[in-house]
Design a protein around this nucleic acid. Structure first.
Lengths: 223, 223
DNA sequence: CATTCCCTATGCGTATTCTCGTCGTCGAAG
DNA sequence: CTTCGACGACGAGAATACGCATAGGGAATG
């Protein structure tokens, strides 16, 4: 699950992004409206959190333009003001929920979960599985053939990403972007290295995690 | 045990929330009806305390909509009026109990306990335990391997929070929010410090309270 | 006024992750 | 079928980030 946070106050932004990451989300941050719109337009987020007051392009306009572009990603507005008027303006612009600062993080989290649940029209999957490999996003437990496996954070995130796209090849560029937050290829082979370590732990016989030469990797549904 | 307090008067709200926390509950606060409904809908509370008079969405309507969504969480109404009429309207809307302002906190607490006991149809757990560690929320007694342990208030609250989520990792952000009531301060290491002291007292051999790097901590069910 | 409690700051130790280098493997072309 | 080039695998060491422990001072409490 990937979330975009468009917020100019760096304190709030880092607090929110950090909290989301600790809760198992991938979180991107845009410090102004233009950047936010560009990101929102080019990436498939599961939810976008937008401050109403923003430099360059305010939150309301941002969402209007996003909706004009037929983007239906759920939007949660953040605002310092709590007037009914503002709230209505936000919802009319195409927002799905509204939260007034200051807010408790758990409240933000609850609403994000609610938005995602509503958008996907099904209980949010906390558990990913493919073949005899399972991964629980909440307890962070991973098993292979019923036996628990101990993964490092990067390995965990990578496996989650692969399981989410099980059956379809994912490119290294995609992996770098979603697991490492790199937006361009920095001429590194980290992915290969972590894939290698991951294989040693969850795919010793090399039947699940396949290489797609010149592209990336696939997680195979069949053992 | 988790309780939601929907109350617009910030004085009363903070008074109630603080009291509940000191009594060992986890308490969330919503300042208006909409927020309250959103939270109630997305979180599993053990009891909800709702003021009847609220901005945006009054308490009665809130509970009606909650019940319409098949939520059976026990509801305790708070109200300035004490007329029999109001009381009846509240109970008809799906409330389980009714308390008139001003009220004594001890009375509120007694009713909350009663509601929870009734809902769970078993005496409420006043005692948390995990492995050989036990914690009594009422007497504030803590033991490890049968021997009593002396904890400072912060340590006690933290341990209660961890025990309540035993088996699942809790993020530092969550801990800061629920144990410290911080909304914005990622620039501190208090959590680490108190965890460290707590370990010295209840987990000298480091087998119970585990670190989840980059996230937070887990209390392990097995010693 | 004394005591308890709790936060801040710091340096250290270690888990984790990255870089680098070498070796192996795959696939296309001759 | 062989050869060559490119790409990937993987181990080892270095760099880094993160968490731990401790001390000291300040605030709250009685």
């Amino acid at each position: 699950m990937r979330i975009l946070v468009v917020e100019d106050d760096s304190k709030i932004a880092s607090f929110v992004v950090r909290g989301l990451k600790q809760s198992g989300f991938a979180a991107d941050h845009a410090p102004d409206g233009e950047t936010g719109l560009a990101l929102a337009d080019s990436t498939d987020y599961d939810t976008i959190i937008v401050d109403v007051m923003l430099p360059q392009l305010d939150g309301i306009s941002l969402v209007k333009r996003l909706r004009a572009a037929r983007r239906v990603t759920p939007v949660l507005f953040l605002s310092a003001k709590s007037s009914v008027d503002d709230r209505i303006r936000g919802l009319q612009a195409g927002g799905d929920d509204y939260l007034t600062k200051p807010f408790a993080f758990s409240e933000l989290l609850a609403r994000v979960h609610a938005l995602i649940r509503r958008a996907s029209q099904s209980p949010e999957a906390t558990r990913l599985a493919c073949g005899d490999v399972t991964l629980d996003l909440v307890t962070r437990e991973v098993t292979r053939a019923g036996a628990p496996v101990d993964l490092q954070p990067r390995e965990f995130t990578l496996l989650a990403f692969l399981l989410r796209h099980a059956g379809r090849p994912v490119s290294k560029t995609m992996i770098l972007e979603h697991v490492w937050d790199y937006s361009f290829d920095p001429q590194t082979n980290v992915v290969d290295v972590v894939v290698s370590r991951l294989r040693a732990k969850i795919d010793p016989d090399h039947t699940r995690l396949e290489t797609v030469r010149g592209v990336g990797y696939v997680f195979r549904p069949h053992v």
